[in-house]
Design a protein around this nucleic acid. Sequence first.
DNA 1: ACATTTAGCAGACCGCAGTCTAAAAACTAG
DNA 2: CTAGTTTTTAGACTGCGGTCTGCTAAATGT
Lengths: 191, 191
Amino acid sequence: MSDQKAVGRPRSAEVDEKLKRAALKLVRERGYRDVSISALIAEAGVSRQSLYNRWHSKADLVLEALTDDTEGLVQLPDPARAGSAQAALRDFLHGIFRHLALDGTTLRSLIAAAQEDPAFREALRTRFVEPREEIVTALLARAQSAGELPAGRDIRMLSAFIHGAFWYRLLNGLPLDEDTARDIAAAIFAP
Amino acid sequence: MSDQKAVGRPRSAEVDEKLKRAALKLVRERGYRDVSISALIAEAGVSRQSLYNRWHSKADLVLEALTDDTEGLVQLPDPARAGSAQAALRDFLHGIFRHLALDGTTLRSLIAAAQEDPAFREALRTRFVEPREEIVTALLARAQSAGELPAGRDIRMLSAFIHGAFWYRLLNGLPLDEDTARDIAAAIFAP
DNA sequence: ACATTTAGCAGACCGCAGTCTAAAAACTAG
DNA sequence: CTAGTTTTTAGACTGCGGTCTGCTAAATGT
């Protein structure tokens, strides 16, 4: 797990930073599709090869820039604090939706990019999708133990329903707002 | 609704056919991403402009070729025949999944293309997504009237759950098989 | 017959992605 | 200090998409 290479010129951390900053800035102001690699390296002031030394594609760079920026934002909500598991789920979803007001369109583009690139699909899954899946699954499991959810319910399928509804609305251009968060939570916990 | 233009050289129906056939053939054997516009028109034996006279993009052409090919395949299942609304839903999903064994990867690419192109997103919704939504919604509504589904359940949200789970699995590269169809139907009708 | 209009074809053109080459720069090992 | 290794930069190169131009072909209307 230690550094592989103690030989050769070391990577410049500054170049990393410049590229990630340029990526976030340009993607947010022009949109993912309209940011070319050429524009990225021009904005960052680095060479083309320096980008490809670090990432395989624009999608890879933007994913890292985005996850760096939202670190520590996704965490398991406390049902006791929220009042109930249903309220905790609602608040958790609402928090995610609020954050997507800024980067939702970029996330859509990343999901799109993942469809044509298996390696990036894997990266998106491990860095973005799975952490959120685990939180929801844990929340539902706790709710089921506490009796807030009937014992017969299929936790993993309910988790797929929640994330699926989220993706479905995101990718179809439907709004993700507080009402949506409330309705999803209500439907999951419906008797 | 009648023909707009009674003047000028008429469009060749043969060119339409050649392009759609070429699109289906190449996309199925090489995959959407690896089919270039240049390869399409070469395979069809038509000019570049003839393609752009008819469709705005590769995605538009492939969508039409695909929906032409699967016409009449999506229809409202009969719960009486299947035994129950749950069985009807399971069979309906299974039928869709079976068909996607051939064109599932192409559908993923079309969904991806829709994320970067609002006009195509609309086309995909009206030609592909909404017909399936309506069938599922009608099925759930009938089931609710018949008492197979509790009266309090939110039909539209359940429909979003079903399609969302489908999209979520499709776009994350998870298998869509008979078991998945059964599990989704079971979770929707869980007491 | 003839003007008008649209479709068809071949091919030029520009911008970009992704790969590659060559040379300078920054490090380690010995 | 020297040899070896990797990063960085500048820029060339190929292939493609999408647009545009010039020309020919096939229809309509008077």
